[in-house]
Design a protein around this nucleic acid. Structure first.
Lengths: 404, 404
DNA sequence: CGATTATGCTCGTTACGCGAACAAAATCGG
DNA sequence: CCGATTTTGTTCGCGTAACGAGCATAATCG
């Protein structure tokens, strides 16, 4: 069967592709779904579901198992899950402390491949070369099963370039080139907070929310607005830099080039400034230390924490006023701040909300994936490319070439 | 032909509806399109295009004319446009100065029905009753051709209620009930700035932008983020209240209940405060007076204007950092401020942008529809409901009942 | 005025999912 | 233990929409 061409043999072929994609996306969103359930959820007749699943099985995209008694009346149904030789995506994550590479299967399961720690990452070339080597290792291992790559980066990503990464000390890095990825598969690069937000919106704390806001505090604040599981990343992919909104002291210069950014009011730099201590070389580590002091009775640290908590709450309120999410997911230090200084966060949050919102303020909830959210999100975005018309066409073409 | 039922006679029927909707949406987006052009743009064969257009013509949704020589080689093609007895939507707009009702045709053409001015609108019941009467007049005139109603309101709209309207002095008004609309057609209520943004994104200054930001200054700032022509209105429809982000002096209380809102830094209240004059009863009118003074050499007014211009530029920069639009459309007083104090706006705008954005800052452009943008946007959203599967089903059902 | 180009029309063909009918596999209750 | 009931799986004739080849039509070109 040749890949579908627009117009050939009518729109019926387009319907087939839509049916196959609907089933694949259902299996991805609900690993261990059943044939009966997906037929019901997708509004397919049982005959159609059978045929589509057979078609996908022949392409080694899904497999069936089970049909074991459930204790309920009626003929047992079969479980539909990913095929053992089905597509995988590679995901890479870079942070100021380490980098990691994993693969992800249809359904979202992550399998770590490599992780290396680094104190100061040094030159981009070095780190990216090692990451690229790990990715090529994955490609060697999985061959044509590897269909896309997702890369989560700690900074502002615009048009596929890491244009600012304060924690790494990098500026304007061509990531794909640095990784030396020669293969032609889709490569999705994005901000790590944006990707973590996607993971929370699809499988995490915000899975039931049509509109959600994700915020994380590491060095500064990152985040993203999510609508029906999709990140509002803007025209160039750099949306979500809420930390560079002028919620702070306008006299304070920000490393980003602007002044008065929210970033400076909610992280380790803010804590140090409120304690009248010198700016920390490693704001994240310094923040941890101050929070520990606050936890163990240091009054000055406590007061600094309360100020930062107020700044956090007030900024979140402003975003809620502007973007009207149903839920706000917090991650990173934001969760710790909310834990240790909940009343200060909440008071500033409620005070910052427009009056009509105070009756039912969107809840602030902790992330479900605090440690690997950005990898999970990178996997989701990579699978978006795979579970598309173009992705399915490519898979079919490769399957045919392999059979021929 | 009965309305389409999911599953009946295969997905072929679903294909038909998609084809019809694609053609209708094309005609709506491109009034005076041609049969040849829409076949090409939509990837239809000429036979299919002919059949779909015939189907739509039979339903009195579109008509054809022309086929007149164009001077180009080849057989002339026909123009496809709205049917004279096709669907219309009613649009209503309420502002602090007046209210208006119009109808809109497929393709976007607006025809005014009624407009009344009011100095102080008074009780919601009175104004809404008059607007409701005008809408019922439209219903009487158009009968079943009237398919939806769009209503643009000057304040925060959440879950269909006008929960805050500072310029009207209204709070928490049930609009549909106040209008007394008994009919069961879709009624789309929304913020006037949001709707004006939709108009600019689809047919105006931001029509070519995938992601756009719309901002208008009247009393305070309203606006919306737009993605592919759709407004990011949030979970309850209240998104876009950028004026209630804390870009200002945190000590300043805002009528909304929060403090330090951007609203207070960019309108007539800000100008008055900077001039050390009492708060104006009508901030919009007062702003106009100050701008006139600034224009005619009043140094104090000029200085106040420059401060407001800086506040505007700085806040816009923060939104650009966060939302990453391709273009920012300005309307209302924002355009006047940008005209009179362009350098101050631009300087603050560029200074507030993250460094990497300064090379290619999203342009600030004036609205294409400064006077009726919110009505045009209300029409767009009302037609969204009409040009949908449900809307087409309803139209077909009514057409059948009328013929039977 | 024949050649060329572009569009409009006709109609046999293709390919999709539907769903009725039946088969299979479980539990229920007497 | 077995017939009844429920739920799922399989089969296959059916209906339907769009395709596109082939031809007709209507314009401009040289």
């Amino acid at each position: 069967m040749p890949p579908m061409e627009v117009g050939e043999v009518g729109r019926a072929r387009a319907i087939q592709v839509q049916g196959m994609l609907a089933v694949l996306r259902h299996v991805h969103a609900h690993p261990a779904t059943t044939r009966a359930r997906l037929a019901r959820d997708l509004g397919l007749s049982r005959g159609s579901a059978a045929e589509i699943i057979a078609r996908l099985h022949a392409l080694r995209l899904v497999a069936e198992s089970g049909a074991e008694p459930t204790g309920a009346r009626g003929r047992p149904t079969r479980v539909v899950h990913r095929h053992d030789r089905g597509p995988v995506v590679a995901v890479a994550e870079l942070s100021h402390e380490s980098w990691g590479v994993a693969i992800a299967h249809l359904g979202g399961e992550l399998c770590p491949v490599r992780r290396e720690r680094h104190d100061r990452p040094g030159a981009p070339e070095d780190v990216l070369a090692r990451m690229g080597a790990a990715l090529r290792e994955v490609q060697a291992a999985y061959g044509t099963r590897l269909r896309a790559v997702g890369i989560a980066l700690p900074g502002t990503v615009s048009d596929g370039r890491l244009v600012a990464a304060a924690t790494l000390g990098w500026r304007d890095v061509d990531i794909a080139r640095g990784l030396g990825i020669p293969f032609s598969m889709p490569v999705i690069t994005g901000n790590d907070a944006t990707m973590a937000g996607v993971a929370e919106a699809r499988r995490g704390s915000a899975a039931d929310a049509g509109v959600a806001l994700f915020l994380t505090v590491e060095v500064g604040i990152g985040g993203v607005l999510l609508e029906r599981g999709r990140a509002a990343t803007g025209a160039t992919g750099a949306g979500g830099e809420f930390g560079h909104m002028p919620f702070g002291d306008p006299a304070l210069p920000c490393p980003c080039g602007a002044h008065g950014c929210w970033d400076l009011e909610v992280d380790g730099r803010a804590l140090a400034r409120y304690l009248e201590e010198p700016p920390p070389a490693a704001p994240r580590t310094a923040a941890g230390a101050v929070l520990h002091r606050a936890r163990t009775g240091d009054a000055a640290a406590r007061a600094a924490l309360d100020r930062v908590a107020g700044n956090l709450g007030r900024g979140v309120a402003g975003l809620v006023n502007a973007l009207d999410p149903q839920v706000v997911t917090l991650s990173g230090l934001a969760v710790v701040i909310a834990d240790l200084a909940g009343p200060a966060v909440r008071a500033a949050y409620l005070a910052g909300l427009m009056g009509f919102r105070r009756r039912t303020p969107p809840p602030l909830v902790p992330a479900r994936f605090p440690d690997d959210g950005s990898m999970r999100g990178a996997a989701e975005l990579a699978f978006d490319a795979v579970l598309s018309e173009a992705g399915l066409d490519e898979w079919r073409r490769d399957a045919r070439d392999a059979a021929g």
